[in-house]
């Protein structure tokens, strides 16, 4: 088994979506913003991509959905296997008939993603009309059912309302209804709860989990919140500077984190119980794309970095399906690291 894949599926389950060696550049920047990404998601699983702003998590998702115009990005490398079809991402992304039908996406800010000038019901029905051969009445009927499924009270009345009449949590439910109305086998959720209050976030996470167990869809969930990851993920991929630095089943990554960045990130998160001591941080900030170091991209902020880190570390297995890209993993067994203390 290759160590370079973010996966934990047993041999029996077939991945719904696999991404091979996906790289992406912004035009005008020679350094890749996403560099050699491999992902694999099976039915009913949730793969969380976690990382800080600028790590390439959102832009990857947008590119997979074929939502980025060719004049701002360049994809030098990458293939995607989705539902038995291989897409060469260099030339053709997801086609318009698959997008929104078999693969759907929900976004962070439901207010800017919904059209303020159209009624909720019409916006949801549009997704059906676009992909199915049916009448407007049928489409509206399925929109109504979908609103009911995502737990919107008084759905009949809501159909005729505009986005501004709904609260943030309700808008996100509408977004989810719109994404799932065609029964996609794969859902991309880009920070769907970041703009919401915690009590509403808990409701939306429950809803996504529930719908996922009903439909068995695979989910790629993008977030920066390790708490949300722990709640919803089957597998995790930690990204830094456009590369996966650690990946594996959620239990393994949280219980046995190996990469210094993962360790730093986890130490930075204040907890609701236990010690209230000074937080241990990751020093410095993420370098801009132009200043990204060669080799291990984390080495400018890593307290363990040595000259060896100028060579890029490969993702290699440290446990079942648990892979890490660090020359010094596991840290506690490296004499060099111990002696430096």
């Amino acid at each position: 088994m290759q160590g370079s894949e973010a996966r934990s599926d047993t041999e029996s389950t077939n991945p719904i979506l696999q991404l091979h060696q996906f790289s992406l550049r912004f035009r005008g920047h020679p350094e890749p913003a996403v560099d050699g990404l491999n992902l694999s998601v099976s039915a009913g699983e949730t793969l969380c991509i976690v990382g800080e702003s600028g790590c390439g998590k959102s832009v990857s998702a947008m590119a997979l959905m074929g939502l980025l115009p060719q004049d701002i990005i360049d994809i030098p490398n990458g293939q995607m296997d989705f539902e038995g079809h291989r897409y060469d991402l260099r030339s053709d992304g997801l086609d318009a008939s698959t997008r929104g039908d078999r693969m759907a996406m929900i976004f962070q800010e439901p207010m800017t993603s919904l059209n303020p000038a159209f009624r909720i019901g019409d916006q949801i029905a549009e997704a059906v009309l676009h992909h199915r051969n049916c009448t407007r009445t049928e489409a509206t009927e399925s929109a109504l059912q979908m609103l009911r499924r995502v737990g919107i009270p008084a759905p009949q009345q809501r159909l005729r309302e505009y986005p501004h009449q709904l609260s943030g949590g309700m808008r996100q439910r509408v977004m989810i209804a719109m994404a799932l109305i065609n029964n996609p086998s794969f859902l991309i959720a880009d920070e769907p709860t970041t703009a919401l209050d915690v009590t509403i976030q808990a409701q939306i996470l429950d809803l996504i989990r529930e719908l996922q167990s009903e439909t068995g869809m695979g989910t790629l969930f993008i977030t920066h919140d390790l708490g949300v990851v722990a709640e919803i993920a089957t597998n995790v991929a930690v990204m830094y500077g456009g590369q996966i630095v650690e990946s594996g089943p959620v239990g393994a990554v949280f219980d046995d984190p190996q990469h210094p960045y993962t360790i730093g990130l986890m130490s930075s998160v204040p907890r609701m119980s236990g010690s209230r001591d000074r937080l241990i941080t990751v020093p410095g900030t993420v370098p801009s794309l132009a200043d990204m170091p060669q080799g291990c991209r984390f080495r400018t902020r890593c307290p363990f970095a040595t000259d060896n880190c100028a060579a890029r570390p490969a993702l290699s297995d440290v446990g079942p399906d648990h892979a890490v890209a660090c020359h010094y993993a596991p840290l506690e067994q490296q004499d060099e690291v111990r002696c430096a203390m």
């Binding site: 046995d256 360790i263 020093p283 690291v337 203390m341």
Partner: peptide, 18 residues
Amino acid sequence: RSVGAEERFALYRAALQT
């Protein structure tokens, strides 16, 4: 966390201080 991980967190803390 696992024994190894606790050791790693301690190493990380120490390395940052150094």
